[in-house]
Nucleic acid binder design. Sequence first.
DNA 1: CGGCATTTTGCAACCGGTTGCAAAACGGGT
DNA 2: ACCCGTTTTGCAACCGGTTGCAAAATGCCG
Lengths: 345, 345
Amino acid sequence: MRSREGKRGVMVVTLKEVAERAGVSRSAVSRTFTDGASVSPKMRRKVEKAARELGYSPNALASSLTTGRTKLIGLVSSNFHNPFFLEIFDLFTRGLQERGLRPLLVNLSGETEPENSVRMLRQYSVDGVVVASSTLPPGFAIAFREAGVPVINAFGRYASDPQVHTVGIDNVACGRTAARTLIARGYRRLAFLGGPEAATSTQDRLSGFQAEIAQAPELGLSVSFAGAYTFDAGRREMQRLLQEPPAEAYFCGDDVLSIGALSALRDNGFSVPGDVGVLGLNDMEMAGWAGIDLTTIHQPIRQIVTSSIELMGAMLDEPDRYPEARVFPCRIVERGTLRPLPEAG
Amino acid sequence: MRSREGKRGVMVVTLKEVAERAGVSRSAVSRTFTDGASVSPKMRRKVEKAARELGYSPNALASSLTTGRTKLIGLVSSNFHNPFFLEIFDLFTRGLQERGLRPLLVNLSGETEPENSVRMLRQYSVDGVVVASSTLPPGFAIAFREAGVPVINAFGRYASDPQVHTVGIDNVACGRTAARTLIARGYRRLAFLGGPEAATSTQDRLSGFQAEIAQAPELGLSVSFAGAYTFDAGRREMQRLLQEPPAEAYFCGDDVLSIGALSALRDNGFSVPGDVGVLGLNDMEMAGWAGIDLTTIHQPIRQIVTSSIELMGAMLDEPDRYPEARVFPCRIVERGTLRPLPEAG
DNA sequence: CGGCATTTTGCAACCGGTTGCAAAACGGGT
DNA sequence: ACCCGTTTTGCAACCGGTTGCAAAATGCCG
């Protein structure tokens, strides 16, 4: 009887058993399964045969104990209600898997203290953490860094002096782009319908939007916030705004919010883009659906995720790497909720 | 110097260091951190003090080596393009976290062989696996069971003789409910617009739908399939169907598909529910959005997830538990895409 | 075939914890 | 103070691997 009953009744084959069956030392078995180690072809064949016959595969957790790497990556987010983030999770999980890294998913909805999650992820010796959120306060990412865990803040606030590695867009610049886009189309009385006021993404987009508008005295700006990046919040807030005559065009916090706002506008008899213009942000899949057809600012999530993962790979080799911010440009995607650019003439 | 530089330059405090500082044995420290172990109050205080001063927290992976439990749960899915599943991931991650279990997320999109994922999850010694998918072939869940890993198939095919623990709805019954719903509203020429033909959910819903319709000879049924549970697939397929006159009412594979179908119908000048009725399935958040307002069959995901997690908890204590199927009823949610029930009288 | 440089292999210690067992400490009763 | 039953504690072995080091095996050359 070579095989053993594990703690849970699961057949579990260990290195030692393979070594015995192959008639070699345990180190030899270990070496054939760690690449870069010196093993003669003959030895390798013997071991592989025994391993195959026993159905052995090495215990990643046990080896992590000596190598100090688990290949576990904490994937931390609080955006579990925005379909846009499902696209992000998809890209992250696939990207990490391709590199042999395993995402340990942490849902921070409702969590206000980073402490617990930091402790938990340290207990599991994650090699690194990706904080993928546009709404979490920067303190969360920083808490990981202070705990000595390599961390990347994806979709977080871009700062020119980043405290932690940051990959994302420049929300201030986005706000400017939004303003310029609306102005170029001849809108004059503009409005900002932001996401949660506390989110840095909201603040930054607003400040860019404001800054650009402030340059032209003939422009008007009204500002309000929805409580969350959700359809309902967007719809409710727009509903509220419509108790007074609407602005000419709204730059909304994100696409879901925009869709909610659109719904309220249409229900109140406003035609979009005839009476009112709406501009979103993110360019989530849904924005392109017929029937929604939202003009929006595209956030290059593929590049952001890819770059985050590359950066994570680099940090694993060089944990004390100097923090850097990687910023990707956003571009406007023309669809049907803003009136067209006037013909050049 | 008590603290040590870990492999990655990370300060990492070990049990041994705590023991030394507290002036006790390593076992004593270990016991104060495993509940149920016998430790005197005095000892506990000493150890906790030292631990606090050093910032110690035990290494979950190291302990898993002897206890045989990692508290890691593989969360396996391939549905990363259906916003409905984001709601499911949200519920699963939170539910697991509350029980002190950690979801290791596996994205199986594009994977055809279960082997790789099974091996990977075994290497990480997961305590159990939740396969949360309505499209993965049953073989995936079974592969885990055969590898000796406790597995639960959530949102999978209900079978009266389940091979693995199954939690979800009875898709055949759902199909019947759909048919009865449409018939009761006076629709006669019915249609099934399913998801991927290979998905068991599609097959089962169809067979229930057919079975019910077959009982009334005056009813007509046409059947077609979209390639995926997505907006585009639904829209495309409906577009194609509209080259001929439409049926009176469509039972669609799921809500996203329905929304796609709706979009095609409206674009082709059909009024819903005036000319054509549409019935969805899932009752995802979006179905309730104003502007979509989809009549649909509610899938009780809260209960399904809660029950799955409970069951997982039970399996961890009793791995050889006899496979069971847990089935939750679906109910119709009246909204605006079917004409109302005729007045009784 | 011997001598030497170069792999390849096994030994043993270690990674960070847990746990059975026996010895030590404790507590209560007399 | 002593005895005995009950905690509490520490020792040492173990979980499943990795790795530095020295011994053994190999290859090459003269």
